[in-house]
Structures are given as C-alpha cells and as structure tokens.
Computed example of a mutant assay.
Amino acid sequence: MTSSSFQHLDIETLADWLDASRPLTLVDIRDPASFAAGHLPGSRHLDNDGVPALLAEADRETPLVVVCYHGNSSQQAAAWLAGQGFDDVYSLDGGFTDWRNQHPERVAMGNAGDT
C-alpha cells in the first residue's frame, strides 16, 4: 500500500454501507458549529486536537471515511490518515453538502454521543 493512498467514495455507496451496518469509522473535519448543526449519523468530529485520540483508539483495519463540506479538504485529510497506517481510507465525494441534499432524513444534530 502506498503511504498516502485513499479512495473516493460516492454518496450512494456510503448510504448502502450504512444500510448494511458495515463497520465504519466516520470522521467529520468541518468546524464544530457546522458539525453540531448537522452531520452523518455515527460520525465523530475530528479537529487537530482530536487526532491523537483517533490515532490511539481507531481500528486501522476498519474502513475510515473522511467527510468535509464539499469533498475537497477531506482528500488531504484522507491521504494523511492513510499515511498513519489506516488500511482502507475514503474521502466522501461531494461531502456533507451533497449528503444532506440527497439524504436530508439521514442527518443527525448536536454533539451528544458523536464525539
């Protein structure tokens, strides 16, 4: 595996994985207020302060999906996380914006249980 290798993931594939209860680690790298206003169910907010905990706690063999606003900055974060030893890293194409547009009924609010 290349040390900075990640894959692109489309919205519908992620929806299918969630429907199938596939084990995933979902991280959202948007700002805290945006995360609190809405995020993918089961995702955790990730900022620079939270990276050490993620690196210590997350199973590196479980697929890791990185979510941002539009699917741009998540690519850099996904490449970096792949370089940290995660085997299966994805950047969500279209980001949270496209997810919310296509699946408005599948948006969680607040921070409780998602950090």
Rank of each mutant, 00 (worst) to 15 (best):
E105I: 09
Y69A: 15
D49A: 15
V51H: 03
E105H: 10
Y69I: 13
L55I: 14
H103T: 06
F35G: 04
A82D: 07
W99V: 14
W99H: 12
Y90P: 00
V66H: 02
L55K: 11
G94I: 11
L40M: 10
A77L: 03
V65S: 04
H103V: 04
N72G: 12
Q102A: 15
G85V: 06
G95I: 04
Q102L: 12
R44N: 07
G83N: 03
E57V: 01
P52S: 08
L54A: 07
E61V: 10
N72M: 09
A58D: 03
L40D: 08
H103Y: 15
L55E: 11
A58M: 10
R106N: 13
F86C: 05
G83T: 07
S74T: 12
E61M: 12
D93L: 09
H39R: 12
V66C: 04
P41F: 00
R106Q: 15
P63K: 08
L92V: 12
Q76S: 15
A78K: 05
A37F: 02
Y69T: 15
S73H: 09
R44D: 02
D88P: 00
D87Y: 01
P63H: 12
D87V: 09
R106V: 12
G71V: 04
N101F: 00
E61C: 08
A56W: 08
C68N: 08
G38M: 00
A82I: 08
S73I: 14
L92R: 06
A79Y: 02
G83D: 05
P63Y: 10
A77W: 06
P63V: 14
L64Q: 07
H39K: 06
N48P: 03
L64R: 08
R44I: 04
N101R: 14
N101T: 11
N101I: 00
G50D: 11
G85Y: 10
D98W: 11
